[in-house]
């Protein structure tokens, strides 16, 4: 599932120091659960994103372990604190070893 995976992240561009900000992330991925069968009755092998992390300037914000029960195109919304200007780094880990990354800058005044 290396093709067609597109991460999308929404982070406010600016914030006041110490404020709580809301981050929304979505990545397009079919999240094949390993429970479904194809037309011939063979089990379709599992292929999911099994881990997602968000870091800010090297400090961890959230680290999520995903199981097959997470829907297609995994979506997460969570709250973070940005003590200074910097960069949020988002990382998704695929079952097949692929790692998808994206970053977002934020100005803190």
């Amino acid at each position: 599932m290396a093709s067609g995976v597109k991460p999308r992240v929404k982070v406010p561009k600016t914030a006041a120091a110490g404020d709580t900000i809301t981050i929304k992330t979505l990545i397009s991925h079919k999240m094949e659960s390993g429970q479904r069968k194809d037309d011939d009755g063979n089990v379709i092998p599992r292929s999911i994103i099994n881990r997602f992390t968000c870091d800010f300037n090297g400090q961890n914000v959230i680290d999520i372990a995903l199981e097959p029960a997470i829907s297609t195109n995994p979506y997460f919304q969570f709250e973070a604190i940005a003590p200074e200007s910097g960069e949020f780094k988002f990382t998704w880990y695929d079952d097949d070893g692929d790692v998808y990354e994206t970053t977002k800058k934020i100005e803190v005044s």
């Binding site: 961890n60 959230i62 199981e67 997470i70 604190i81």
Partner: peptide, 12 residues
Amino acid sequence: VATFNFGPLSAE
């Protein structure tokens, strides 16, 4: 289903 581990910069 999932496990959310909160880091030091997680707010709520």
